[in-house]
Design a binder for these strands. Structure first.
Lengths: 345, 345
DNA sequence: CTGAAAGCGCTAACAC
DNA sequence: GTGTTAGCGCTTTCAG
C-alpha cells in the first residue's frame, strides 16, 4: 500500500554498484567521471524502470538549491498581480523552476516572517514587491548575494536589481491626453504616496498639469475601510463641481471610483473624462469603456524571469540590473472629447 | 558578511549542553523530558538572543512534515480562485501553515508533474481542483493517506473529502428567478460539461426550464481562442432572436458574453435578462448591474482550512467528509423584469 | 535529567 | 573508473 519511494541507495544495492556511481550517473556526470557506458546505461534504465525521482528535499538540504522562486506580492487577488503571477509561473515552469506565490499584505512583519520561512527553505531567488519597512531585509538579502529582484517599486537608497515601468512618463502622457481632449479640471485620485511608484505617478500628473497651466486637484485617499473611502471620494467630487475629468492612480481606486460615480453622480460617468492606471478586462466592457494605462504584463514577466535565471546562473555579484519598461496608454471612450473640440477657444 | 545561520549544534556547544537537550527544549518538550528549569531557561534565552530559527528543510527531511499546504487551482488569475486563495492563505497563516499556490491549467500532465514535485517536498496536505484525467493520482493520494480535499468538483466514483457548492440548486433557483421576472426564452451559455460541477449547473437550469414548460437554449462553447468563442456566441445570439434572457455558467463566460453583447447588440444589454455564475465586483459597477450567483468564498475557505487542519491532526483514515455549501443569488438590475409584469397574460 | 548516536536521502571530496 | 565516507541540520531512541 505504501511502497516507500526508492532511494538512490536502493538502486545501488539492487545493481551492485556504489551509491556514488549512481549519484554521478543520475546527475549527468557519468561522462565527466568516466563511468563505463555499460554501467551508466544499466543505472539509467533501472532508474527509469522503477520510475525513480530524487527526493528534492534531501537534495536541497545538501546543495542549498531548491529550484524554487518566490514571487511575493501585495495581494494575490489583485488582478494585475494574479495575471502576472500566471505568466511568471508559466515561464519559470518551462525552465524547470517552480514558483511559489504569497501575499505580504503590504505588512512589514508579515513580509519579514515570510521571508524568513523562505530563507529557511533555501529558495533560490526572490521576486518581490517590497513593503515600505523592509528596506533592511532587502539590503541583507542583497548582501548575502541571494538573487533578488524588486518589482513595481524599489528603494531609492538601495542598490538592487529591479524591474519597473516608467510611471512618471505614463501618467504624464495620459494626463496630456486628457488635456488634449479638452479637459481642463482634471482630478487625480491616489493613495498616500510613500511608495516610489505612486510618487512617480503623481509627479507625472502634476508635471503635465503644470505645463498646461492648469490647476491640480489631488485626492490622497488614506487606507480606510471601503465605505469610508467611498465617502471621502464622494465628498471630493462634490466639493469640486468644476471637475471635468478624473484620473485614478490604481485599478482598485478606479473600481471604487466608478462605483461611487455610478451611485452618486450617474450622469457624470458619461460627462467626465475618465482614465485609470492598470488595465482590466472589464474596462473594455464598461459603458463608456474606460481608458487605461496598461502595464506590459508579458514583458514584465519575461524580463523578471530572464533576469532571475541569469542571476541564478552567475550569482548575483556581478552587475546590478535595473530595467524600466514602457507602459501603454489604451485610449477608449471614457477619455475622448465629450464636447467637440471646435467649441473651445 | 555571510555569518551562517546558527544551528542547534552551535547553541549546544556554546551552552555546554548536548544537542538533544537543546532540541527537546526548543520543541517544547522540556517539561515532558524533565529538563531543569534552569537549563531550559538558559537555552531559550540564548536562542532568542541569537535569534535562532530552525532550518525547516532539515526538519522536514527528518520528520516528513513541512507545514505547507498546496492549493492547486485551474488558473490563479481567475478572480474567483485568486480571492479564495487569499482567504485560505490568511487563515492557514494564522494556524502556522504556509500555503503554496499553483495553477494546473486544467492539464493532466501538468497536474501530475506538480503533484510529483509536492510529493517530493512532502507537503502536508493538498487542496485541489482536479483536472479530469487525474482520477488515478487522486486515488493514489487518498490511498497513501495523505490529507487531500477536492474542491469545486469531485469524481463521482472516488471516495474523497470534498467541499463544493450546490450547483444544481443554485442554477435552478436562479433560472426560476428569471422566469418569475417574466423571461420566457432563456439562453444558457456553458462549456463542454465533462466536469461534474458544470453538469450540475446545466441540469439545474434544464430542470427549472422543464418545470416551467419552456424551451431550453443551450450553447456549449468549446475551448477555443477568445475570438473564435466570441464569434460562436454571437452566432448563437443571432440565430435565436427570440431570446429574452441569457444565463452564463461561469464568470469568464459572462465577461466574454458581455463584450459580445456590447459590441454586437448594444441595445440587448438593457432588454435581456442577464445572470451569471460567480460574482465579481465589476458586475455591481456595470450598467445595468449584473445579477450573479455568489459562491460563499469566506465559508468555502473556512471549511477547507478547518477540514484540512482536522485531517492533518488525525490522519485522513477516519472519515470522509463531503460538504456541500449553499450559494447565494444576488439580484441586481440585469435580471429584473424589464417590462412591467402586469403587461403579461 | 542528560548525552551519544543513528539516521532522513543525497552530494562530492578523497581515496584506491 | 568506482567505492568510502563525511556531512547538510534536525529528531528521537536508548543508555546512562
Amino acid at each position: 500500500m505504501k511502497p516507500k519511494r526508492p532511494s538512490i541507495k536502493d538502486i545501488a544495492a539492487k545493481l551492485n554498484v556504489s551509491i556514488t556511481t549512481v549519484s554521478f550517473v543520475l546527475n549527468g556526470k557519468a561522462r565527466e567521471m568516466r563511468i563505463s557506458e555499460e554501467v551508466t546505461k544499466k543505472i539509467l534504465d533501472y532508474a527509469k524502470e522503477i520510475n525513480y525521482t530524487p527526493n528534492s528535499l534531501a537534495q536541497s538540504l545538501r546543495t542549498g538549491k531548491t529550484n524554487i522562486i518566490v514571487f511575493m506580492v501585495e495581494d494575490i487577488s489583485n488582478p494585475f498581480f494574479a495575471k502576472l503571477a500566471r505568466i511568471i509561473e508559466e515561464m519559470a515552469y518551462r525552465k524547470g523552476y517552480k514558483v511559489i506565490f504569497c501575499s505580504n499584505e503590504n505588512d512589514d512583519r508579515r513580509t519579514r516572517e515570510l521571508m524568513q520561512v523562505f530563507k529557511d527553505r533555501k529558495v533560490d531567488g526572490y521576486i518581490l514587491i517590497p513593503s515600505a519597512g523592509i528596506e533592511k531585509q532587502v539590503k541583507d538579502l542583497a548582501e548575502e548575494e541571494i538573487p533578488l529582484i524588486l518589482f513595481d517599486r524599489y528603494f531609492k537608497g538601495v542598490e538592487t536589481n529591479y524591474v519597473i515601468i516608467d510611471n512618471e512618463k505614463a501618467t504624464h502622457q495620459a494626463t496630456r491626453h486628457l488635456i488634449d481632449n479638452g479637459y481642463q479640471n482634471i482630478g487625480y485620485v491616489t493613495i498616500p504616496t510613500q511608495q516610489v511608484q505612486m510618487q512617480d505617478r503623481l509627479s507625472g500628473y502634476e508635471k503635465a498639469i503644470g505645463e498646461a497651466g492648469l490647476k491640480p486637484y489631488v485626492l490622497e485617499l488614506p487606507y480606510v475601510e471601503e465605505e469610508v473611502g467611498e465617502g471621502l471620494m464622494k465628498k471630493f467630487f462634490e466639493s469640486h463641481p468644476e471637475l471635468d475629468a478624473v484620473f485614478f492612480a490604481t485599478n482598485y481606486l478606479a473600481k471604487r471610483g466608478l462605483l461611487v460615480i455610478k451611485e452618486n453622480f450617474p450622469e457624470k460617468v458619461h460627462q467626465w473624462g475618465l482614465l485609470t492606471f492598470d488595465d482590466n478586462e472589464f474596462f473594455k466592457i464598461h459603458t463608456p469603456s474606460i481608458s487605461a494605462i496598461a502595464q506590459p504584463l508579458e514583458e514584465i514577466g519575461k524580463t523578471l524571469i530572464q533576469m532571475m535565471l541569469q542571476l541564478l546562473k552567475k550569482g548575483s555579484k556581478d552587475t546590478i540590473q535595473q530595467v524600466v519598461l514602457p507602459s501603454k496608454l489604451i485610449v477608449r471612450d471614457s477619455s475622448l472629447a465629450k464636447t467637440p473640440l471646435s467649441q473651445k477657444s
